[in-house]
Computed example of a mutant assay.
Amino acid sequence: MTSSAAYEILGLTPKADKKAIKKRYRYLMHHVHPDSGAFKAASGKSYDYRYSAQEINAAYSFLYKNDNFKLQENIKNTGTAKYTEKNTKYSHNNSSDDAASNNSSDFNYSPKNKTIWKAETNPNAYTERNIYHYTEDSDGNVFGAFVIATGKYIWNHNEDFPLFLKSMFDVSKRLLDGVEGTKQHLVSDSVRLKFQADLTYLLSQQFIHFSASMHDLLKPISDEQADIFYIESMLELDPHPPVVRAGMTIYPTYLKNHRLFVKTKSGKEAGYISFKDDRLYYLIIPLLEQKRAQVKIEISKEQDRLNTRGQNKYKNIDFMIKLLPKPDKYFPENINTRIDELLQNFTKI
C-alpha cells in the first residue's frame, strides 16, 4: 500500500495531521464496521462507503502505526524523507511481482481488493475457516474483529491464537447449526456446548502443523536433539495425592477430556499436567493422542511451598517431549471420519 492509496481510502489529503487521521478513522469504522453497532446512518439506511472495513483499518495502520506517518511529518517539517515504504506491514500491490517481493506482509490486497493470507493450506481439511484481524479505535482499544481471508489455512505465529480459536468456534457452530436445522427438536445448551467443544478440538488439529508450531513456540534442548523440547509445566495434584519429591519421575497413565493424567512409579494417581502457555494444549495433547511423541516428566527441584497449600495444589515439573519421526505433512487421516461421526451423534440426540 502506498501513502497516496492510504489517504485515498480514508478520504484525506496528504496534509492531514495525526489528529485528523485518528478522527477520520474512528468516524469511518463506526459507520462501516458491523461489530461497531453503528453501521447505519441516522436515516436508517446503510452507510455506503466504497472501501471495506479491512481496507480502512489497513490504511490507518499504514499511516498511523507504521513509520509512514513519521515520513509525512518529515516531509512537512524538513522537506526530506528518510523512510522507504518497502518494509511496511501491509502492501497494496499492483502486480504479482510486488506481492512476491514483500514476504514480510501478513496479507496483501490484490488489484480486486481480495485479501490473500500468506500461510500453508491443508487441502484435506473438513471445511474452510475464516482468518480474523483485530479492529482498534484511534486510542488502540480493540472493539471487534473482521474477516480478512477465508480458506483452509494452517495456523502460524502471524495469526493471533485467540483469533484462531475464534475461527474454530465459528466453524464448529456453523456445522452444528446446519445439523440442528434438520432436527425436530432443539438440543439443550449444555449438551450443545459439549459437542461444540469436542468439534472445535477436532477441527483445530487439521489447521495446526505440529512440528513447525513446536519449533515456533519452543526451543529444542540442543542443536543435536532438535526434536526434543523442554516445557515449563505444572502437576495439578490429585485431591488425595501421594508423596511426590523433587527429582522424582512420574509417568503418563491416560488421557481424558484432553488432559494428561500421571502416576507415580508405585502406580498411585498423582494428578494431571497443565501448561503455562494455553496454546500448548492444542499441540501436546493431540500429539500424545496420535502417539506421535514420547514424554519424560520429573518433579522439578525448584518448588514454592505455597503451591501445595489451599484448594488448588500443584507442583512445578520438568516436562520433556520428543517428537517421533512421522511425516507431519500428512494430517491425521481419521479426523474427517471422527468429525462426521460426531455430527451424526449430534443428530441422534
Rank of each mutant, 00 (worst) to 15 (best):
K89M: 08
I116T: 02
S52A: 12
A59L: 03
I131P: 00
Y109K: 00
A59D: 00
A59W: 03
K89E: 09
A99E: 04
D139H: 09
K82R: 14
Y126H: 07
N68I: 09
N103W: 08
I116R: 13
S138F: 00
S61E: 13
D97G: 02
Y49N: 04
I75H: 05
S91G: 09
K114H: 07
E55T: 06
L71P: 01
A58F: 01
I75G: 06
N113L: 09
N66H: 08
D106G: 01
E85D: 14
T121R: 08
D106R: 08
E55H: 01
N130M: 05
Y49R: 08
Y109H: 08
D48S: 14
Y51G: 07
E128D: 15
W117D: 00
F107A: 07
E85S: 09
T80Y: 06
D97N: 11
L71Q: 12
K112C: 03
N122W: 05
K112A: 14
Y64Q: 08
Y126I: 00
D106N: 07
I131A: 03
Y51M: 02
T84F: 09
N74S: 15
A125D: 10
A100G: 00
Y64K: 07
F143P: 04
S52C: 12
D97L: 12
F62H: 14
K114I: 09
Q54H: 14
Q72K: 12
I116V: 12
G140V: 01
E120T: 13
G79Q: 09
A58G: 15
K82F: 07
T80R: 15
Y90R: 05
K65S: 11
K86T: 11
N93G: 02
S61A: 10
A119P: 05
K118C: 03
Y49E: 01
N74E: 15
T121C: 09
Q54M: 10
S91T: 05
P123V: 02
N141K: 15
A53T: 14
N57L: 08
A58T: 10
N77P: 01
E120K: 15
A100L: 12
I116N: 08
A81P: 01
A59P: 01
Y49W: 03
W117V: 05
A99R: 14
Y109S: 04
S52Q: 15
N57S: 13
S61M: 11
N124M: 04
T88P: 01
R50I: 06
D67T: 06
K112Q: 10
E120P: 00
P111D: 00
Q54S: 14
N94E: 02
V142P: 03
W117R: 08
Q54F: 11
T88A: 09
Y90K: 01
V142C: 13
N130C: 06
I116E: 06
G144V: 05
D98R: 12
E85I: 05
D137W: 02
T127V: 08
F107S: 04
E136S: 13
Y132G: 12
N124E: 12
N57Y: 11
E73R: 09
T135Q: 13
P111R: 05
D106F: 02
S95V: 01
H133R: 11
D98C: 07
S95M: 06
S110L: 15
T80A: 11
G79H: 11
S110W: 02
H133C: 04
I131N: 02
P123L: 06
Y64L: 02
Y83C: 03
R50P: 00
F62T: 04
T127D: 15
Y126M: 03
R129E: 02
F62A: 04
H133Y: 03
N74Y: 01
N77C: 03
I75A: 10
